[in-house]
Design a protein around this nucleic acid. Sequence first.
DNA 1: AGGTATTTGTTCGTATGTATT
DNA 2: GAATACATACGAACAAATACC
Lengths: 274, 274
Amino acid sequence: MGDNTHIRSMLLAQDLMATTSDAAPERLARSAGQQPLYSTLAEMLSREIYEGKYPPTTTLPSEKELTERYGVSRQTVRFALRMLRERGLISSHPGIGTIVREPVRTQGRFKALNSAEALLQFVEGTEMHATSLREIIVDAELGEQIECKPGLLMSEATFVRKTPGEDLPMSFVKIYVPPRFAAAQQKPIVSNTPVYQNIEKMFNVRVREIRQDVTATVLDEELAGILQTAPGEAALQMTRFYYDENQQLLQVTVSFYPRSRYTQSARFRVDDEA
Amino acid sequence: MGDNTHIRSMLLAQDLMATTSDAAPERLARSAGQQPLYSTLAEMLSREIYEGKYPPTTTLPSEKELTERYGVSRQTVRFALRMLRERGLISSHPGIGTIVREPVRTQGRFKALNSAEALLQFVEGTEMHATSLREIIVDAELGEQIECKPGLLMSEATFVRKTPGEDLPMSFVKIYVPPRFAAAQQKPIVSNTPVYQNIEKMFNVRVREIRQDVTATVLDEELAGILQTAPGEAALQMTRFYYDENQQLLQVTVSFYPRSRYTQSARFRVDDEA
DNA sequence: AGGTATTTGTTCGTATGTATT
DNA sequence: GAATACATACGAACAAATACC
């Protein structure tokens, strides 16, 4: 991140100027070891859209104009726009231009290979109450559980998930994030935007795949206390691995659902053979 | 799609040649009004992967080689690979190459379930040892569990499910069948054809949808004895409802999987919004 | 350990096609 | 039909990550 800041502010200043002057735009080059140029540009445009510079239903400057304004090639512009398109921020239409889309509900984004939307729908409309945040070194046992090499540094945050109307918590969640994305964990005490969405926004990546392992466990005294259940109650233990399109691990969550508070339901359809 | 066929067969023939000869590959051009070239190429590669030409964990030919083999630019190859990557078929790594991914992860006690087919196959690969068979009147508690009205007559069979080769049973299963299909339950003591297949064959119906509810439980003495586990061990309790295309209930199964013997694994992908 | 070759990632330039105004 | 804007496709070059000797 560090050195990128000056690039972005440079870009911003230049961008603001470009709207009011005809000054020849300076060339922009990627500093060594930084994020790709198109990624930086996507971040910038995304921020400007959120800030209201390009309101929904209006069009962005054309690709040609963007290449001139930022002094980058059309390919770079297109790659940046592609990222925004994949995040649902814009839509592109030949002959028309690039239109800023209305912010959409993030629900329904997840469509399972096997149709388990019901499985993730409950994430909406729940409150996450942070209970701890720390950095840990992965030991052998945890490494086994979250499938990463022992000795690695990870950021661990713990939460209690509550349904807004309910008194008793629905589940206890531990979220592990690689140090690269740790900044996304610095959040308010109570939140209802999932951590992965913070990572997506802050680091310009996208969750493309989730693997979920389900097993059963018996709640120990500590967990039973946190969840306010009878000690010894059975619980579902779900481990979810979030990956981007390059199989890069973005986060791992380990959740405990007491049997009395949650049942997972999924539907499978049998296809006709072609 | 129609006219595309000749292009693809041309590509295929050329591809097969290229592996055994040094003949200069013919250039390929997109016919008017067709799908993009990279899209056609992606389709081809995808099919070849499914057909086993490029098995999982092996690498695809390098981008340079693909450009030569198909006579297209590197950009076209990269766009095609990008499509496959977004579908989770491959992953790319600088210095290494493009690796064909395993369709699912299947190792140890982890079994992947991503579709009804996988679920049904999973059932087929196991041995069922019958332990009891009787007719019962559904009481209030069971009615709640299998979602049918108390007072109804159902045929109940119980089994121990074993992986061939393994000593210890994997799970304990109770199968409930409505009286009109009860004849399908009259079976040998040891079997590996699932009950639902008997119902399909005998009554000329087909399973079209399966709903699966998952919760956790603690094994009681009786179940621990049957499953030969430590009493008090946690277990996954899965209830599956089998329906035909008219939403007619064909059978209900209630299974208990000790935590040490089975973990359910599923993979979900996130789609782009169109 | 070090240097070279290979492979994917990024970026530029350019040309042409297609859809809309 | 002409102008505009995005989509596809080619070529070329360098950077970064990895493998091999």
